[in-house]
């Protein structure tokens, strides 16, 4: 076997040597494993260095979105959609990310504003992910915001960027009905964006589906809460507020920024 060092000096001169030259397999495996270990260690460091910023940003985006669709709540609670109904607590041993979440917002006087719900469904190109504020007792939407979409730039993405389309959803009663621009005749009708009918209809359809799915669950939750509330509210008005780690206060500046 030739000396590895000389092999390399010649290897990277003009013609690469034929592969028949015998290099021990152990050396090849060792080199790859060594390089892999170094790479792995580097990645772990990078992961830990960037993780806090990434997580903080994700939480910030969520908080801003909830603040926007609920029109600036003072705080909100995170509730979980379990198979048996909506609950403030997870069954023991369950992981948080396995369950759909809804967010229950309260204003500064601690009066409930409504729920922020996530609706996801097919759009024109790909899935559209929406968050919307909803008052289940009145059956009315409070506002919507697009979290993720890949709709056609300049057309379909108007569902995100066109404020006159978005503001139509504030205070409107579900189920919604999409109509052509300029033909709104009933209260629950939404005017579609010209040239982006498919995307606009997808938004309406996704919202309707989420409402039909979640409204009964939310009402059941509120009824259960009301029962608990009447027995406890007199003695301790804060009793229904959940444990501190799930209560997220919304920044004062965020509240003032919301219209």
């Amino acid at each position: 076997m030739s000396d590895p060092a000389t092999l390399h000096d010649t290897a990277h001169a003009v013609p690469p040597p034929p592969l028949t030259q015998d290099v021990s397999t152990v050396k090849l495996v060792f080199t790859l494993v060594f390089a892999g270990v170094i790479a792995g260690v580097l990645l772990v460091f990078a992961f830990h260095a960037t993780l806090p910023a990434i997580e903080a940003h994700k939480a910030e985006v969520l908080r801003a979105a909830i603040g926007e669709v609920l029109k600036g709540p003072a705080r909100y609670e995170t509730l979980y959609v379990l198979p048996e109904g909506i609950s403030a607590t997870l069954p023991s041993g369950a992981r948080e990310k396995d369950f759909e979440k809804v967010f229950y917002g309260f204003d500064a006087q601690d009066t409930p504003i409504g729920f922020a719900l996530v609706a996801m469904g097919p759009g024109f190109q790909d899935q559209i992910k929406l968050i919307f504020g909803f008052d289940p007792r009145a059956g009315r939407l409070l506002g919507i915001k697009v979290l993720e979409s890949k709709e056609t730039p300049g057309l379909g993405d108007k569902i995100e960027k066109d404020a006159s389309f978005r503001t139509q959803f504030e205070g409107i009663a579900a189920p919604l009905l999409g109509v052509k621009k300029g033909e709104k005749s009933a209260e629950n009708e939404i005017e579609m964006i010209t040239g982006a009918t498919i995307s606009s209809r997808a938004v309406v359809r996704n919202l309707n589906q989420a409402v039909t799915r979640l409204q009964p669950l939310l009402l059941a939750y509120l009824d259960a809460q009301a029962k608990v509330g009447t027995t406890q509210e007199e003695s301790n008005p804060k009793a229904t507020a959940s444990t501190p780690n799930r209560v997220v206060p919304v920044d004062a500046d965020l509240r003032s920024a919301a219209p």
Binding site: L7, H8, A11, L19, V23, K27, L28
Partner: peptide, 8 residues
């Protein structure tokens, strides 16, 4: 480059 075998 000196430590990387040509084969891999």
């Amino acid at each position: 480059k000196r430590f990387i075998p040509n084969e891999i």
